[in-house]
Design a protein around this nucleic acid. Structure first.
Lengths: 196, 196
DNA sequence: CTAGGGTGTTACCGGTCTGTAACTATACAG
DNA sequence: CTGTATAGTTACAGACCGGTAACACCCTAG
C-alpha cells in the first residue's frame, strides 16, 4: 500500500457513484452502460472488468444506497445517544427533508417497479434491504417505549413510502405536504396508548 | 351501424387492452410494440394507424385505467346510495383487495417511476388523474361528515399508495398486512373528532 | 360488380442496447 | 530495465427498439 492513501476516485468507485446518481435520476432502464462510463470518465471495458453485468452493477448500487441509509441511522444515535424517542422524531424530520429533496421516489421502490422479472437478482436484495429497514424502525419504536411498536412502525413506513410516490406523481404540493403532521400525530397517539 | 352491435374486439380495443395488461405486468420500457401487437393478434402497422406513437398509447392506457377506477367509485354509490361513510369503508375494502390481487403496484406510480423525462406527455395525465382521485376521496370524506376531511383523505391516500409500493418490494407479508387495521382505525379516530 | 377503407404481411431504416475481442498505454514493483 | 496489473481505445457482434414504406387482402357499402 504505497502510501496508505485510499486513492479515492478509482474507476470502480467512480462508476458505482455515477451509476447510483444516474439510475436515481433517469431510472435503470433509462440509462445505458455507455452513458454511465462516459459520465464517470472511463469506458465500458473497465466497467465490465469490475462488474460482471449491468444487473450486478444495479445490485451493487442498491447495496450502496442501503449502506448510506444505514449511516443515517447511526447519525441519529450519535446525535441523540440513547434517546430513542428523539431519534424517532429525527427520522420523521429526515424523511420530510427527503420528500422535498427531489421529485424522485425511493430507489428501491423505483427499481422494483422497473425490474419485473420475478427472479431478477435485484428483487432479492430489494426485499432483503427493505425488510432490514423495517426491522430497524420497529426496533426504534419499541425501544422508544411504544406499546404497539410494530403497528406504528409499519404505519409510518407506509406513510413515508406513499409520500415518496406521491411526490413523484403529484409533486410536492400533493398529500405529502401533510406528512410531518400525520407522522407526529401518530407518534403522539401511540405514545398515549403505550404500556410504558 | 349495420346491426347495432358494437363489434367488440376491434383491433384498436384489443391493442389497448393488451397494452394495459402488459404494461402493468412487465412495465412500460419492458414491453415493445411488437410484443403488444403480437399478443393482441394484430401487427405493428395497425397499431400505428390507431396511435401516433408508443407514448400516445401509454397515455391512452393510463386514461383507460383511470376510467376503470372511476367505474369503481360509481359502483360504491350504487351499492350504498347516499351512505358516504359506508362508501368510505367500501373503498378501504376494495383497496385491501387490490393489495392482494397481484404483486404489482399502481400503474400510474410505476409509470412515473419509469418515465423520468420531465416533459413526457404521460407525466401530465398522471398528475391530472392522481389529483382527480385525491379530490374524489376528499369529497367522500367531507360528505361522510368528517371534520378534517382533507387530512384523513390524504392520510388514507398515502397509506394506500405506500402499501402498494410495499407489496411490490416486500411482498404481501410486509407492512401492508396491517393496512385495513390502520385505515379503519384512522376513520374511527377522525370520526371521533368530527364536528358533525 | 365495383370501389374503398380497414387490415395483414414483409421488409426495411436508423438507432440503441449489453457484452466482448484485441490491442495499446500507463504506472508501479522487483 | 523488466514484468505485471490496471486502465484506455477501437471495433465489433447480435439483439432489440420505435417507426415507416409498399403492397396484398378482404369485407362491406353502394
Amino acid at each position: 500500500m504505497t502510501d496508505g492513501v485510499v486513492e479515492r476516485s478509482r474507476p470502480r468507485d467512480r462508476i458505482l457513484e455515477t451509476a447510483r446518481d444516474m439510475f436515481h435520476k433517469h431510472g435503470i432502464k433509462g440509462v445505458g452502460v455507455d452513458a454511465i462510463t462516459e459520465a464517470a470518465g472511463t469506458n465500458k471495458m473497465t466497467l465490465y472488468r469490475h462488474f460482471e453485468s449491468k444487473d450486478e452493477l444495479i445490485v451493487e448500487c442498491l447495496r450502496a444506497n442501503a449502506a448510506k441509509a444505514g449511516a443515517m441511522w447511526e447519525a441519529f444515535e450519535v446525535e441523540f445517544p440513547g434517546d430513542k424517542l428523539a431519534q424517532l422524531h429525527a427520522w420523521v424530520r429526515k424523511a420530510a427533508a427527503m420528500l422535498n429533496a427531489d421529485g424522485r421516489g425511493c430507489d428501491m421502490a423505483n427499481a422494483a417497479a422497473e425490474l419485473t422479472e420475478p427472479d431478477h437478482p435485484a428483487r432479492l436484495v430489494i426485499k432483503e434491504l427493505k425488510e432490514a429497514q423495517r426491522h430497524r424502525l420497529v426496533t426504534l419504536c419499541r425501544d422508544a417505549g411504544i406499546g404497539q411498536a410494530e403497528l406504528l412502525a409499519d404505519t409510518l413506513s407506509l406513510l413515508f413510502e406513499g409520500a415518496r410516490v406521491s411526490v413523484q406523481t403529484e409533486g410536492t404540493e400533493g398529500p405529502s405536504t401533510q406528512f410531518v403532521r400525520m407522522a407526529e400525530g401518530l407518534i403522539v397517539s401511540f405514545r398515549g396508548t403505550a404500556a410504558g
